[in-house]
């Protein structure tokens, strides 16, 4: 379970402070599928990075499975990212010089998993995303959809309970995007907490809940099924200029 209270993330820009997150309070239950939406600059990626322990809040508390992780030292945060959290990025972030298999193995290298076990597990993970035949290919030889599936295999290889995806289909065509979303749904159904940052109402609709952010605050919480279009979602009851 994720619980954040009075969460702030402030960037000091010269002599004025930019609040990327402003007093965010939220609870996300284990196994929930949550989408975060909002215009660019609304703080959704910052929120995701803080939830992923990649970024530390300037103020506030963050309980991850009951443990206050807000002020942990780097080593412990790395350990949490390694074992409890899986990241999926819009731009995939595969290491170009490594094969699909080696990319999936990466987290296990940092976890000190022996080579033989690493390869067996990576092979299974690639099979699960339908890329068995591509395990020996360099990531540069893969299509966008294939890259993202490798990235999903990598994100799940350590068996994390929390999956964070930042615009996972943002760089993909409709077909590949659908494949990726189907995979994410599958992972969610297997019991993982899934938090997706997206611009796409179709992606958000799959979520149990949608958090709408604006200027660093969560301004709306709606059911995923109720999402129709961005205009109504981002209608904050003000006249548009």
């Amino acid at each position: 379970m994720i619980r954040v209270e009075d969460l702030w993330r402030t960037y000091q820009m010269g002599d004025h402070a930019l609040h990327a997150l402003k007093a965010v309070d939220e609870v996300i239950e284990s196994g929930e599928h949550v989408a975060i939406m909002g215009p660019s600059g609304s703080g959704k990626s910052t929120f995701l990075n803080v939830l992923g322990c990649l970024d530390s809040p300037t103020r506030g508390t963050y309980y991850l499975d009951g443990r206050d992780v807000a002020g942990l030292p780097d080593g412990e945060l790395a350990e949490i990212r390694l074992r409890q959290i899986g990241f999926i990025f819009q731009s995939f972030h595969l290491v170009a010089r490594l094969t699909a298999m080696q990319n999936v193995e990466l987290p296990m290298i940092f976890a000190g998993v022996p080579a033989a076990e690493r390869r067996a597990r990576a092979a299974r993970a690639l099979e699960a995303v339908g890329l068995s035949d591509w395990s020996g290919h360099l990531s540069t030889e893969l299509s966008g959809g294939q890259k993202q599936r490798v990235a999903i295999a990598r994100a799940t290889i350590m068996g994390p309970s929390l999956l964070l995806a930042d615009e996972p289909t943002g760089n993909l065509d409709t077909h590949s995007g659908a494949q990726v979303l189907a995979l994410l749904d599958e992972l969610h159904r297997a019991g993982r907490t899934l938090i997706v940052v997206t611009h796409d109402p179709a992606v958000a609709r799959r979520a149990d809940r949608v958090l709408v952010m604006r200027d660093g605050e969560i301004v709306k919480r709606v059911a995923g099924a109720s999402v129709t279009d961005l205009a109504s979602l981002f209608d904050f009851g003000e006249p548009t200029p």
């Binding site: 992923g52 990649l54 780097d74 080593g75 790395a78 350990e79 990212r81 390694l82 074992r83 990241f87 990025f89 972030h93 290491v95 990466l106 987290p107 940092f110 976890a111 990598r154 994100a155 350590m158």
Partner: peptide
Amino acid sequence: VGLLKAVGASRRQ
């Protein structure tokens, strides 16, 4: 480097 850290590499690693 950002990715390595995201997948769980510590500063030391």
